[in-house]
Amino acid sequence: MPVTIAISIDDACASLDAHPGALVLAGGTDLMVEVNRGVRRIDHVVAVDRIPELRGWSIEGDHDPVHGQVLRLGAGTTCADLAEPALASLVPALAQAARTVGSPQIRNAATLGGNLATASPAGDTLPVLAALDAEVELRSTDGTRRLPLDEFVTGVKANALNPGELITAIRVRVLDGPQEFLKVGTRNAMVIAVTSLALVVDRPGRTVRVALGSVAPVPLRATEAEVLMAERLDFEGLTTPEPELVNRFSELVADAARPIDDHRSSAAYRTHAVGVLARRAILRAFSGPVPEPA
């Protein structure tokens, strides 16, 4: 049988162990494109789309007022699942990013774990996960390990998965603060990102975290811009920052980009666009002052 339909994580890991070089099939929306084009040949496949443990999300541990709760997202959670209101209220930027992935049909199949495994520079959820300091949970018959996102995504379509390993979950903090995801494409729907930007605000932690997509081999954090804003913003009232500060933030974000010219756009446009997205994202997030609670 060239296809194993795994019914549990242990089952999947055992199959991956038994069939070195086997491909993991989740939503299939990236893998099957390569198979259909004949650039990827299938020898053995472990299908993980029917493992209940992989799908769905949960809040882990006790409420932590400083760092926020930990949200554990099963790797098999689909983009459509991510856009559901209950989950969207916890990680709105991730929901927004998920809603821009491909088409409705793709979102019904494509998974968060698949987006990570493909590790495309244009992977829509990756900048959000980078901004959220996500941690990737990997399992094999040898056990479980966790990697921070920036150690997991190692290059253009390259990741730190070892042979026999399966992405089982992604952990992020549920933050108290606004979140934004903006994506530029040359069509109004169903388009690969020319560039994208995720911005999350951690009010108790007094940080703004910004990550960029499609401007480097891996999702990039704009750390200088983050440092600047951590010092200068009003995290209590979310007061609209002064234009001069917004300009500086936009410049620092654009400076962080390391884009290339390709058939989807030019490096110059991408650099310009992330600067514009940064400006818009920060002004959307800091549109206060926030009214006093009644």
Partner: peptide
């Protein structure tokens, strides 16, 4: 708005 699903424009 321009940008569509990417929600880039206010």
């Amino acid at each position: 708005r321009p940008g569509g699903a990417g929600r880039t424009a206010d």
